[in-house]
Design a protein around this nucleic acid. Structure first.
Lengths: 207, 207, 207, 207
DNA sequence: GATGAATGAGGGTTCATTCAT
DNA sequence: TATGAATGAACCCTCATTCAT
């Protein structure tokens, strides 16, 4: 019953951390493709291993269970969202930042697939306490970053001083979340929609 | 030698349509409870039958497959959203309508569970063409209703005349979609959040 | 995660206890054949189901796990041993009882296979606390029965009064256990061996 | 273009046979510990390698398969039993020999573990022709040694002349086999039991 | 010779669905 | 119609064994 994983020590070929990291990515990328194509539940470990170009059992040397694979992927994906917020912050004004980032997203050909994965992540997290924790932590980090950004823009006079920065941040995030969610099913064009969203934000929150 | 299957229904007694409809609801309600509690995939047909208080096999006399059960439930749920839009329309102003409905939702103790189910529905639909059609049709109906509402409020002067009603409708829907999605993971209070959302909408779209 | 096994109640076809009992035996017999032929570990659930003439999944409606199958079989087998002791007790003298039973065993064409299964049972129980309990309980019952028998034969004067009945019982059981164990590998004839064993017992313990 | 595999062993350095033998023992001892602790089937090659302090692959340079490991261990263990018989023979009388050896065994703290392994060996051999041969050969050797011993004790007048020496030997072995087997599950004390067994043997076979 | 990494066949178990009553 | 019992395809994961260094 006790899982014995022999230590890395010994005299022979040393464990190569670089090779391990490369393998890990290889597997994770295979998993991402499968998950985007068919979802978490429909993707079998065999499919993933084929897509990743490794043997099934090899998966389990990097991720103890299929769920851990999912979790690792989610962590990867969520940190991308944080990067987007930081990108908004780097522009001269919030308005320009939003426009820049939304243009970037709208031109991403994998946007729909990425969004689909997001949907699944949330659905999955809604049933899985451990994943929920990961998502919540990520949301909290993103909200904090966005709030900070808003505070700065308030000091600079771009955002109205009487608005609660956390609320502003929450609403902006919610708006885009909902928007990209609709993209998967709706028929409206992403560019048009995001431009309208930016305008809405500016109209509502800037002085 | 044709198989004689002695009909137990006797003397041409017609299947009682009312009884059928009742059973159907009974099953659907059992399914909803299970789906909300554990999700689509984790809910087994046996669990559902137990929750509904019927035998497993009986399920299949009302729904050819488990997926059809899911589909029926989705249709039921989506039509509730449409009802909400119509409820907004019945208030004197859009502002009041939004406030009324969001207050209604915020006080619904099953809101989180309902939202969870929504998440699952969308995730499921993202992988299943047939379901996607159902969701898209529902979204289209809701968007149309909301757009009409906006048009009327524009004529009445509440909503700015220079705004594209479809865009306004889309953004409002997206905002609430995103908001309720966040509710499942985030820690912000529903009431505070929806009030802020209503204000944002008013600030952005009314003159 | 919670195993829901729908209750037997309801209006439809009632659970038929006789049919269930029959199925249970059918499965258990299939399992016995497999276990005797290939051992516990080498026997797959699929093999067992084929041998029993049922579907794999049906196994699990009667035995929650493969281990429970093993356990049920062990219980069945161990109770047979107890019956043998009782058979010894029914003869006019212990000597005649032993001779009768050993003759019976020696003429049993499945003796070797049965003994093989016994070997496996003990090996398995040596690693499995739960099974060990079952075996220990069985051993205790058999030892008690045998001890009682010895006490009676002491009162009747057949067995020496100065012998500890529990020890006598233990030794007799051990002797036959060891003997039948040897049968599987050794080349000596079962009849000759058991006759010699009976004589040894008589020489050692009767006055 | 023959594959050039640069031999690391260089200049024809002969494999050091002593080092090989040491490694072999090292591995075998690791295997024994694992097998005693968890049994043959539950012990994985990885566990064994960890316990032995070598890499997994290294196992296969000494034992072509896991079964060979088992086989080697069995051979080692069985030869110990033969040594015990010889020890009995070295005493002045059979009675003293038995008493000496049983005292020796009863004081061995690893007796139970060793016996457990014996159980597994027999169970395994009952399904595996190759192992059965090993066990049978060992049994035959032990039986022969014991028979010889009995013959000698008959000549010396200790054992009754009218007893078939092979039968006597068989019964003695069977008795102890059965006894030690019971030790694993039963609750009786080893010392008491073996003393009673010795008495039984003396009562039954000596004049 | 020795090592850690990789493999694929196969095992136990689950579950949507069908059958017999 | 409604039921409990039965089914078989498929899934996740393990492990003896091999590979590359």
């Amino acid at each position: 019953m006790s899982k014995t994983r022999p230590s890395t020590s010994g005299l022979g070929r040393p464990a190569n951390p670089q090779a391990r990291a490369r393998r890990r990515h290889q597997i994770l990328n295979g998993a991402r493709k499968c998950f985007q194509r068919r979802g978490f539940h429909a993707s079998t470990t065999t499919e993933i291993s084929v897509e990743a170009g490794v043997g099934v059992a090899n998966l389990y040397q990097y991720f103890p269970t299929k769920d851990d694979l999912v979790k690792a992927l989610i962590e990867e994906d969520l940190s991308k969202d944080l990067a987007l917020v930081e990108l908004v912050d780097q522009a001269a004004t919030m308005r320009e930042g939003l426009e820049h980032v939304t243009r970037l997203l709208a031109s991403d050909p994998t946007l729909i697939e990425t969004t689909r994965l997001h949907l699944e992540i949330h659905a999955e997290a809604a049933r899985n306490r451990e994943l929920a924790t990961v998502v919540e932590a990520s949301n909290a980090r993103i909200l904090a970053a966005m709030s900070n950004l808003v505070v700065r823009r308030q000091r600079e006079g771009e955002v109205r001083a009487d608005a609660d920065p956390v609320m502003v941040a929450s609403l902006i995030i919610a708006l885009f979340d909902g928007l990209y969610g609709q993209l998967v099913f709706g028929s409206v064009d992403a560019g048009t929609l995001t431009r309208a969203a930016n305008k809405m934000i500016i109209d509502a929150f800037t002085s």
